[in-house]
Amino acid sequence: MKAAYVIASTASVALCVWLFLYEEAAEPGDLSVFHEEVDQCNLCHRPWRGVSDDMCLQCHSFTDVSFLTPEIRFHEAEKHCLECHIEHRGVGGDISRMDHTLLNGRLMCTQCHTDVHSGFFGSDCRECHGIKTWDIPGFRHPPRDERQCSRCHAVPPSHEDEGFWRKIEMTHGREWQEIEPKDCWRCHTTRNWRHLIMEHQLEKTSQAESLSTP
């Protein structure tokens, strides 16, 4: 039986040596489409040291970012590839894990994101928004009878356009043209910006206004 142990040990060692030399045996998953042409492990993995940012930057250069879309131009300032990127997650696998906390303090949000407030609240988004979630905790829109919309909202360019008001006139009549563009509350509600007050509701509002006016 000792011979069996010797044969088994030799076979096990031989199998392990073969598996070690056969690089694909250690591959924890297929490479993504972006790297599928990479056929040698040592192009990214340095023996006993593994992958590093330097190895990524041998092929990926961000010295000229003018050809990149705004969303990924921050790579010019970031050289810590492995903090967000991971490979071997399959051909269709997601190799990026966007973590804003890693970029905190190093980049302006508006470098990548469009300011939907049109600069109304300044450029420091983090005064209100968090890093982990864009939602503002505890934020409540002003009540329904709030009429000072222009304190926060700018009149959109569409409402400055003559064509817009012509369309309004054609649909609702001439008197609607008298509405000031900054009087958002005349048509919009605070419940939902796209929830418009219809004509009969507007009449009701006007009647109520005239009654309450001394």
């Binding site: 070690f20 250690a26 023996p47 006993w48 040291r49 593994g50």
Partner: peptide, 9 residues
Amino acid sequence: LTVLYYGLR
């Protein structure tokens, strides 16, 4: 060994 060889991450 392979985990260490290809880099522990």
